[in-house]
């Protein structure tokens, strides 16, 4: 990937096998970094290494060693998997697209919230904006195409559905996902050493809260 990046693909789609191989590789690289490594970005079934070409004097040999490691990435260690519970308010004032998703799925809005809130999710990638998690595990019934016209301003904390993924907007930003709820949690804090609440590999559960609980949170 250009002259300072190397993207390794372990498989495509939201297959959990390739995602966990990619995570294992990212872990292995962090534990035993090759010379010149700047940082590692896992996303879905890929891992991208950024490196400094000045510190990699024999690139071909360097690449061969990394390819060898990628063939046997090992196991993603369970102890690094964190479980994070995200409180969500599904009340209409925080869920402007809940009816649209419900109509698409042929379900009552309350049922959509229930299905969304009961599922187990994994963070498959973080990006789009700082701290934005792409969550796999959304029940198939709730897969909903993105809005044809993106909103210019989505409030921070909005919980959305984009195609087969669930996600959460950490910052106010433009966005095309269907908004079905909102969390009072800060998903991104620029002043923290670990600024993103969620990282790739985390398990995520949602917990429904009332508008009163949402309002009282801060």
């Amino acid at each position: 990937m250009g002259d300072t990046g190397l993207k390794i693909e372990f498989g495509s789609g939201a297959e959990s096998a390739s995602i966990s191989e990619a995570l294992a590789m990212a872990e292995s690289l962090a534990g035993d970094p090759p010379p010149g490594l700047v940082e590692v970005v896992p996303a879905f079934g890929t891992v991208t290494l950024y490196y400094d070409p000045v510190k990699v004097s024999d690139f071909d040999a360097w690449l061969a060693r990394i390819e060898q490691r990628a063939r046997k990435p090992g196991k993603h260690s369970r102890k690094n998997v964190r479980e994070v519970v995200i409180p969500v308010c599904y009340a209409p004032e925080h869920a402007p697209d809940l009816d649209r998703v419900a109509a698409q799925a042929g379900l009552a809005p309350g049922k959509v919230a229930e299905l969304h809130g009961r599922a187990d999710y994994h963070v498959a990638a973080v990006g789009f904006t700082p701290g934005f998690p792409y969550l796999t595990g959304l029940p198939k019934k709730l897969h909903t195409p993105r809005r044809a016209t993106p909103r210019l301003a989505v409030p921070a904390g909005s919980v959305g559905i984009g195609g087969p993924f669930a996600g959460i907007y950490p910052l106010a930003s433009p966005g095309g996902w269907n908004l079905i709820g909102r969390t009072p949690l800060d998903l991104f804090r620029a002043n923290d050493a670990a600024p993103a609440l969620l990282r790739v590999g985390d398990r995520v559960k949602f917990r429904a809260i009332s508008p009163e609980e949402f309002a009282a949170w801060k």
Binding site: G2, E9, A125, V126
Partner: peptide, 28 residues
């Protein structure tokens, strides 16, 4: 799937008009 992009990445949206990412490029 969304995967890593970096400053300098030339990506092609569905309209076929390329965008070369700059310093503030999103990460994936």
């Amino acid at each position: 799937d969304s995967t890593a992009v970096a400053p300098g990445t030339l990506q092609v949206p569905p309209d076929g008009q390329p965008i070369v990412l700059g310093a503030d490029a999103q990460t994936i």
